[in-house]
Design a protein around this nucleic acid. Sequence first.
DNA 1: TTGTATGCGTTATCAC
DNA 2: GTGATAACGCATACAA
Lengths: 346, 346
Amino acid sequence: MSDESGITRGRATAEMVAQRANVSRVAVSRAFNPHTSLKPEKRDLILRIAQELNYTPDRAARALVSGRSHLVGVIVPDVCSHWESQEIDALTTALQNEGFATLLFKTRTDYSMDEKLLAYMRGFNPDSVIAFVENVKPTTLARFLDRAVPIYVHYPYPGEADDEEAGPLHDRLNVLQRAGIEQAVALLQGYGAQRIAYVSGLGKSRANTAREQMLRTVMAERGLPPPVIAPSDYSYDMAYAATLDLFRIGQGADAIFAANDVGAFGVLDALRHELGLRVPEDVKVVGFDDIAQSHWKSYNLTTVKFDLAERVRALVRLILRRLNNPAAPALQETLQTRLVVRGTVG
Amino acid sequence: MSDESGITRGRATAEMVAQRANVSRVAVSRAFNPHTSLKPEKRDLILRIAQELNYTPDRAARALVSGRSHLVGVIVPDVCSHWESQEIDALTTALQNEGFATLLFKTRTDYSMDEKLLAYMRGFNPDSVIAFVENVKPTTLARFLDRAVPIYVHYPYPGEADDEEAGPLHDRLNVLQRAGIEQAVALLQGYGAQRIAYVSGLGKSRANTAREQMLRTVMAERGLPPPVIAPSDYSYDMAYAATLDLFRIGQGADAIFAANDVGAFGVLDALRHELGLRVPEDVKVVGFDDIAQSHWKSYNLTTVKFDLAERVRALVRLILRRLNNPAAPALQETLQTRLVVRGTVG
DNA sequence: TTGTATGCGTTATCAC
DNA sequence: GTGATAACGCATACAA
C-alpha cells in the first residue's frame, strides 16, 4: 500500500528484505532454510536485515507450497480437566521446541465428537492431530484429515496387547495400565482390604472401561471378589455423590479405586467430611493419574502414575517420525504405569 | 497427483468440487462465503457435493489472500495453572463458535517473554493475540505483531482508573479489583480480624502488585494497619512455606488474604495440617479467582471472584470489534469482581 | 448471477 | 552458488 514511501508499514515481506540486501527474493527464502546452499556471509547479511525489518517467513504461504502447516491439532473435551491441562502444557512446550504450534479444539462435554468439528479442524490443515477422546474411531479421524496424521491414544483391554502381532492400523500410543493396577491391588491386599469398589470414569470412555476390565482381571487373578462398581464421570462432584450412595444405599467398601485423581478427591472428601470415616484407617483410597494436586496435604493421595514427560516425548516422536516418513507402516509407542505410594493407603 | 484416476486421494480442492458440480471454481468459493451472491439451488448443490468429497476451503490459502488467518494466539506461562486453564477452555469454546481457533504458546515460567517467542508467533499470522502475562509491554507486543491485534489484560492500580479520561493506547480489558477486595476486608473486619497478612503472587506480576496495592488502600481507608506481606509466587508449595514462616518466624495473623485460590489452598493446608490451627476459628482465609476447586469440601474457600464467562465474552467482543474495524480508536472493556462467601471466614 | 484474470508470500524446479 | 519461473488454493475486481 505505502510501498513507495520507503517506510515499512504493516508486515515485512521477503521481497522487501531482498531489495534492502540487494539479493533476489529466492535468496531470502534460502537464508531461512538451513539445508539449502547459500554463501554464509550472504545468509548472515540477509538474516541481519530481516531482523532489522522485523521479518519472519509467513507460515500460511509456506504451508501452501510445502504442504506443512507446522500446526498440531489437539482435541480435548475439557482443557481444565487437571490431567489434560498438564498434558497440553507439556505438549505445547515440546512442540514449540520442534517448531510446531498447538491448535486447540474443544468437543462437547458429552464426548460426542461430531464430524462437524473434524471438518472445521481440517480447514486449518494441521500436520498432525492428537485425540484425547477415546471414543472417536481412528478411521473417522483419518477420513476427515487426509493430509494430517492422526495419533490415537489407545488403552488396550486385558490380554488384548498379545493379539497385536499383526501390527496396528494407525499410529498410536498404547498405555499399559496393568503394572500400576497390579501394584495398587497388591498394596491394598497387603493392608487387608477385601471389598474393593471402583468409582468409575465416564462410562463411554475407553480409558475407563479398559481400566475397569484390568482391575477386574487383576483382582480375580489375586483371588479377590469382583469389584463393586460405583458409576461416575471423572468429576469431583459425581464421585462425591457416588461415594455417598455406596455407603448409604450400598454395602460400603474396605477400599476405593477411583478412575482418576480428581474423582479420588471427591471420594476422600465424601468419606471424611460427610460420612465421618477415616482414611486410610476405615477406608483406603487409590487414584489414577498423579496430577500435581495429589501431593497436597489435604489429599496426599496414593495413585497410579503415568509419566507425563515420557508420554509427551512419545507423542512428539510419533508425530516427527510420521512426518519424516509418510509412507512408513503404522507406528506404535507404549507407556507404562506405576504406583506412587502416599498417605491414603496404610 | 492421481487426478486422472477419478479417485480422490489426499485433499479435495475447490477445482475438483467445481468439476463434479459442473460450475466454475469461483462458484465454489462463493458457495462458502455467505455474503456473496449465488443462485440458492446452485449453492446447495455445491455444498452437497463438497460434503461428499469431504472438501473444506483451505484456511492457509484463504489467509494468504484475505489477510485473515482466523487464528488467535494465546500466550501463557502455565496451561495447568487452574485459573488459566479454565480461561483457555472457555475462550477456546467461544472462539470456536465464532470461526476462530486457539493457537497456544508457552513462555518461560520466569515470565521472561522474550522477543524470540513473539517473532516465532508472528510467523503463524494470528489475527489477534491475548497476553495473560502482565509484564510484557503492549508496545513490544504491537511491534512484533504488525498484522495481529494485541489484547492486553490490565489491572489498574488504586486511583489509576480515574486518570484514564485520555483513553488507553491499546485495546484492553480492565479488571477492577476494588469491589471484591472491599467486600472481603469488610467481612474480615466484621468478624473481628485486625492483623491481616497477604500471601502474595509472583512479585513481578502486575496482577499481584495491583492486588496488593488495592488491599493496602482499602485497609487504610477502613482504619486497619497495613498488611504483613508474605512473599510467594501463586503456587501451592510456596504459599504453604510462606504460611509456616509467617507463624513460626513472623508474628502470625488473624486473617490471610492469598493472591489466588491455589495459594489459599496452600495456606489452608499449612494452617490446619502443619500448624494445628483452626480455620476460620483461629485464622480466616480469603482467596482470589473462584476456581472450580474452591467449593470442594476440603477447602470450601471464601474468595474474590472474577466472572469467567463475562471475562471471555469481553475478550471475544474486543477481538471481533477490532477485526471489523481496524481503524477504530483503542477499545476498552471493564470487568468487576465480587466476593463469594463460603466456609473459611466466619 | 456468473465467469475470467490477477495476486496473496512462499518454496520447488529448473536453468545458468 | 545463484536467479528466473511456476506452482500452492483461494478470494476479489472487473467484465459480461
